[in-house]
């Protein structure tokens, strides 16, 4: 068992280690490991305006996706939980799980068809990219929230609040929301990671000035391998920052609750 584990971890870590090494390597052609040591590739990425813009776009899209996923996902999960009829609950579940089942590319083509029309000429807008990410990530958040709601015995807590004099608004903000803070945090980490790394849909619907980082990164692979490695490392850091950011945002929500 430990051997399998070690092999698995090595398998997992090796590409990342290679990327890290490659991003600091001077030149890397037809050898197993690069030669020389340089910060040149990072400096080049920093100097490249399209990378800098993509970096900012990715952070903005990610943050907006997290905010809108929270604003829509929490009431949505609560409504599904509250839905009186079993059939409705099942139907809604199937509906919101569809984006996971359908390939993102299908969604992307749909977006292109609809939003490049004359009536809705929004293709390329950043908010459209956020909308796309929202569709893709919402199922993960709602699923996490629903799992938590079920084991919390929220009914009983709400009954207690109601008997103490709380109307719907007070119950929702004083009891339901704070009770969901843990699952909201873990759900948002998933949303952030998905949004930062999303390529398929973003590649299809983003405009030239609203390209998120992974889309721009693809072009790095046509150039020097050190540059590509450094670019990928930046994405990795970006993903970690987004994850930690959304987790601490969830934590902050907990504090104020």
């Amino acid at each position: 068992m430990p051997v399998v584990m070690a092999v698995y971890l090595a398998y997992l870590a090796a590409p990342m280690a290679l990327l890290l090494i490659g991003s600091f390597g001077g030149s890397w052609t037809n050898t197993l490991l690069p030669t020389g040591f340089t910060f040149r590739w990072y400096a080049e990425i920093w100097a490249d305006p399209s990378f800098r813009r993509a970096f900012t776009v990715s952070l903005i899209v990610c943050a907006s996706t997290c905010v809108s996923a929270t604003l829509i996902g929490v009431p949505f999960a609560y409504a599904i939980y509250r839905a009186a009829q079993r059939q409705i609950r099942i139907a809604v579940r199937i509906l919101y799980l569809l984006p996971i089942a359908a390939p993102a590319i299908v969604l992307g083509f749909g977006f292109i068809l609809v939003f490049s029309s004359e009536e809705l000429p929004f293709l390329g807008a950043t908010w459209l990219l956020v909308a796309g990410h929202l569709v893709l990530t919402l199922p993960y958040l709602v699923q996490t929230l629903l799992g938590d709601i079920r084991h919390l015995d929220l009914d009983r807590l709400e009954d207690a609040a109601e008997s103490l004099g709380a109307g719907f608004t007070s119950r929702f903000f004083d009891v339901v929301l704070p009770s969901l803070r843990h699952s909201l945090t873990s759900g948002l980490v998933m949303v952030a990671a998905q949004s930062i790394g999303e390529f398929q849909l973003s590649n299809l619907v983003s405009g030239f000035l609203s390209r998120p980082y992974p889309v721009v990164l693809l072009q790095a692979f046509y150039g020097a391998s050190g540059f590509a490695c450094a670019g990928t490392m930046v994405l990795l850091v970006l993903a970690i920052v987004a994850g930690v950011g959304s987790a601490s945002a969830g934590g902050a929500a907990r504090m104020t609750a």
Binding site: D153, A160, S163, G165, G167, D174, V175, S179
Partner: peptide
Amino acid sequence: PRQRDLGVVFQSYALFPHMTALDNVAY
């Protein structure tokens, strides 16, 4: 229920898990 002004103690207490004892009572 909220307009009946009754103190109800539930079987499993139903204390709000994110509030301290004092905040629960002050709610």
